[in-house]
């Protein structure tokens, strides 16, 4: 409300002071991305000073492999958060995806491939159902996805009550295969980035962000409430299924409970990466940085030879710092405008 000025400043007030204030404003405006970048840089510097070979392709391959499941899950979560919602059901979907893969793939590559597509389709479908329930019954995303999380987890437990099952040997080779010196995970990351740079420029991508930013304006401009929710949560379910498929290449087994380990970290990675829980603000690049921050913390705890239990503590503190820092930066950016 204090943003409007009654008397306008003369145009081209290119005083040095004005320019400094301008750049300060620009910088603060990007703070939600700059802060996680600085955090990642600091963590990497610390990590690199403690261990040889941190800044090598091998390390990149390893860290990306470790971060990829979270990254895929967080990609879906990012899309939902940009819409201004939240998706807890990805936990159930990831569990269900791994147990389906571990029990249905068999040894026939064609059958495995068919089921892989099937799992992805189930993810998208379940997500779309979330979106439809939220819109049609006018329910809160938190409660709807809490309920579907429970339903999906239960289904996973019925299919495979305890960790186990098996996956084709060729499937598990995926995680270790390399091309041009880069591991499959790094290629996957590049693919994910390519997807994002495509998606965020599509009309759907813009509309999702716009709806998260101001629902009323977006609907007035012709965005369909049902369509946008089905698309948003459908994508989230799809990415959760992809996360499950990737996870099985790493673990080689199905687990009916593993998904819950990714729900809140996926939100945390996105929020550390500067995505606002109120919707409309942020992007996948931030989320990727957030996911790497969480992964590097794990590595650091390992090389520091302290108890691995320090990992959640540090993650929690980083999460709080990131949220507080970007909210303070946002406030000063707003002030520097007036």
């Amino acid at each position: 409300m204090t943003m409007a000025t009654l008397e306008h400043q003369p145009d081209g007030a290119a005083t040095r002071q004005g320019r400094a204030a301008f750049w300060r404003g620009r910088l603060l405006a990007q703070a939600s991305l700059i802060i996680p970048c600085l955090m990642l840089a600091a963590l990497l510097a610390l990590y690199g000073s403690l261990r040889e070979g941190v800044f090598t392709i091998d390390e990149l391959n390893l860290d990306t492999a470790a971060a990829m499941t979270l990254l895929l899950a967080a990609t879906g979560q990012t899309i939902v958060l940009l819409r201004g919602g939240i998706d807890l059901s990805i936990g159930g979907m990831i569990s269900l995806g791994t147990v389906l893969a571990a029990t249905r793939f068999g040894s026939d590559p064609a059958q495995a491939a068919a089921w892989a597509f099937g799992i992805a389709a189930i993810g998208a479908l379940v997500g779309a159902l979330n979106g439809a329930l939220i819109t049609v019954l006018r329910l809160q995303p938190f409660l709807v996805t809490l309920a579907t999380w429970s339903i999906l987890s239960g289904t996973a437990m019925i299919i495979l009550p305890t960790d186990g099952g098996s996956l084709p040997a060729g499937w598990m080779k995926f995680g270790f295969s390399q091309w041009l010196g880069l591991s499959s995970s790094v290629w996957l990351l590049l693919l994910l980035l390519a997807f994002w740079f495509w998606f965020k420029r599509t009309r759907l991508g813009i509309s999702i962000r716009a709806t998260g930013s101001n629902e009323r304006s977006a609907f007035l401009s012709g965005v369909s409430p049902l369509g946008i929710n089905v698309a948003t949560y459908g994508l989230s379910g799809l990415f959760a299924a992809l996360a499950a498929l990737y996870l099985t290449t790493q673990t080689g087994a199905g687990s009916p409970t593993i998904g819950k380990d990714y729900i809140l970290p996926s939100v945390a990675a996105a929020v550390i990466g500067g995505i606002s829980l109120f919707g409309g603000r942020g992007g996948l690049v931030g989320t990727i940085i957030g996911a790497y921050i969480l992964t590097i913390i794990g590595n650091l705890v390992f090389v520091l030879e302290v108890s691995s239990y320090w990992q959640p503590i540090v993650s929690g503190i980083i999460l709080l710092i990131a949220v507080l820092a970007s909210s303070i930066a946002e406030k000063s950016a707003r002030r520097s405008l007036t």
Binding site: L133, V136, L137, R138, L139, Q140, L143, V144, L146, A147, T148, W149, S150, I151, L152, S153, G154, T155, A156, M157, I158, I159, P161, P256
Partner: peptide, 25 residues
């Protein structure tokens, strides 16, 4: 019934109760 079934029932019960309380219903 297994504990998996319990989770499914939990989810369905939550969906039903919150739906009944929602304005749309």
């Amino acid at each position: 019934l297994s504990s998996g079934a319990l989770l499914i029932v939990y989810g369905v019960v939550i969906l039903i109760t919150v739906s009944l309380a929602s304005e749309a219903i």
